[in-house]
């Protein structure tokens, strides 16, 4: 290839690189806003308490199935207040949590990373044989909550499970992909 031809390719290469940077880096920043969470939470801090007199918790202590088989998801304020009616540790974020939410009897407006739209139905108990981490981020060793990205156009979370992901797994497991299995 002659030198002239090589130089001729340069604008295309530059344009391609620019498009990649825009598509992978800039556009997501425009589309999603990092909303974060209303308050901090440490999963490791609850699973392995540093203070010896406090009992270590298990995942299912907060994320459990209700009696009717539905999944409790994020624990309610009442669940938190079972232990945190008064501050238990000297951690400042706990003190703010108690004074801002528990004392004021105000539910924490958690942002749900995988909150599905109104027309989607999902049964956790039907997927009970799978590890939680097949779909959810592993929080066991996380000291803080991951950022929550909201799609500015749709208002849904960036990390929501997409329909094609549900369908792919159902196809792989030879399970029905009927519309009404997941839609309501």
């Amino acid at each position: 290839m002659s030198k002239k031809k090589k130089i001729g390719l340069l604008p295309f290469a530059a344009g391609f690189a620019a498009a990649l940077v825009f598509g992978w880096n800039i556009f997501p920043q425009i589309l999603y806003s990092n909303k974060g969470q209303p308050t901090t939470f440490s999963h490791t801090g609850h699973l392995n308490h540093t203070q010896k007199d406090l009992q270590d918790l298990d995942c299912v202590d907060c994320h459990y199935y209700r009696a009717d088989g539905s999944f409790a998801g994020t624990p309610s304020l009442e669940s938190c207040a079972e232990c945190h009616n008064e501050p238990l540790t000297g951690v400042p974020s706990e003190q703010t949590f108690v004074s801002e939410y528990v004392k004021k009897d105000k539910q924490v407006p958690w942002n749900t990373y995988q909150g599905q739209p109104d027309n989607v139905y999902f049964s956790h108990i039907a997927h009970d044989t799978y590890e939680c981490t097949e779909c959810h981020q592993d929080m066991e060793n996380a000291d803080s909550l991951p950022p929550y990205y909201e799609n500015k156009l749709t208002g849904y979370s960036r990390d929501i499970m997409k329909m094609h992901e549900c369908e792919r797994c159902h196809a792989r497991e030879n399970t029905s992909n009927a519309c009404y299995l997941c839609h309501k």
Partner: peptide, 27 residues
Amino acid sequence: STRPRGVVEKCTFCHHRWQIAKEEARK
């Protein structure tokens, strides 16, 4: 789910109640 203007809808035999019943059975 609630429906917006401009779509067709119909009876579903209260399909959601079946979903709930299946969850209870699994539990």
